[in-house]
Design a protein around this nucleic acid. Structure first.
Lengths: 193, 193
DNA sequence: TTAATTTTGTACTATTTGGTACAATATATA
DNA sequence: TATATATTGTACCAAATAGTACAAAATTAA
């Protein structure tokens, strides 16, 4: 319980690492890149985060998707779950350019590492499935309350929404502007009625 | 017009390189990996393909999506364009495991390189847009012939289909089995009526 | 004040990276 | 057969990579 005090904030450093990994991916992010972004020295890096891979794992574990968090908030606020979902996707379409370019962190990981690093891919898949579960809960709630008339299997609807999310996160890089994305989103949401 | 003859088939070597890049991505594929997969020496490699990046460009340019080629064939065979599209996606759902794991080569490139190498990303995006154009042509044909009653904008429908494709190529890695994917695909295809 | 403890800075290292240099080799043509 | 020409194999290289070693610095507890 003694020792020299840490000169940096672990949380802050982790946030910087997250941003970097999110935009450049795992392989293309070098440890030197990380040190620069996190503004810490090599010793501090290896001392507190053990290594690049271990840091990446921690980044995945700590990652909170802001959009999803917003969706969750809307729901808890008592909003119509169907409207919450629709808002979620409309917000995606209206994101700033740099968000379009980054896409979904977990989706990016699945794509980059599916034939490179299965354990890391699995961690990302687990996160995407959590998102799917969130959708499923909302759909069930909407069906029970009668706000959603469709009696399609909630499991399939949820999986459809996740696929939409995954797809949009690539398509939005092809068309990083709301004018193209919004009509697309509306068509995709037409299932929810 | 003299000189020692090439000991390998350029086309074959390019095919091997394509498979490797497709499964491991750009960054994680080393030149040594390539040499081994292509079964050629370093000299031959740099002599005929100039370098890793140039090879990758050539691979993208020469890439023919087998599934898309099949779709095109079905169409030319005079099949109902709507059915052709439906078959296309159902076939995707029924692909073997390793295809699920590989996903869409062009989509993979967009994800991996969107913040790393814009020129390469653009090449991949161009290809995805070609696919979108193919969908659009089919939708227009289907609407004109009355096989598709929906009068939604063909541009939006095509973009919706590409987004479906992009999304499925991630979701199929979460659920690499037809039992989960088929109901999902059917729901997504419900727009086509 | 000293000892124990932890973090930090600097120098170093082994491996892998993409790529060159260049001579040896194998062919077509003169 | 000799020569021009193109491909190939081997050795080499500089830079970047992830990670270590270890002493110096900064703190708390005894």
């Amino acid at each position: 319980m003694a020792g020299r005090p840490q000169i940096f904030s672990e949380e802050e450093a982790l946030g910087k690492a997250t941003q970097l990994f999110w935009s450049k991916g795992y392989e293309a992010t070098s440890t030197d890149d990380l040190l620069a972004a996190m503004s810490i020295g090599k010793s501090s890096f290896y001392n507190t985060f053990k290594g690049k891979r271990e840091l990446f794992e921690k980044v995945i574990e700590n990652f909170v998707n802001q959009s999803v968090a917003g969706l969750l908030k809307d729901t808890e606020a008592g909003t119509d779950p169907v409207q919450a979902i629709k808002n979620f996707f409309r917000k995606l379409a209206n994101s700033p350019q740099n968000m379009h370019q980054k896409g979904c962190f977990m989706g990016n990981i699945v794509v980059e590492l599916s034939n490179i690093d299965k354990p890391l891919e699995s961690m990302a898949i687990k996160r995407l499935k959590k998102m799917e579960q969130l959708f499923q809960d909302l759909i069930i709630k909407a069906q029970q309350s009668g706000l959603l008339k469709s009696n399609e299997d909630p499991v399939v609807i949820a999986r459809y929404l996740v696929t939409m999310w995954n797809g949009l996160n690539i398509t939005r890089r092809m068309y990083p502007d709301p004018e193209r994305l919004l009509p697309l989103v509306e068509m995709q949401l037409s299932v929810l009625k």
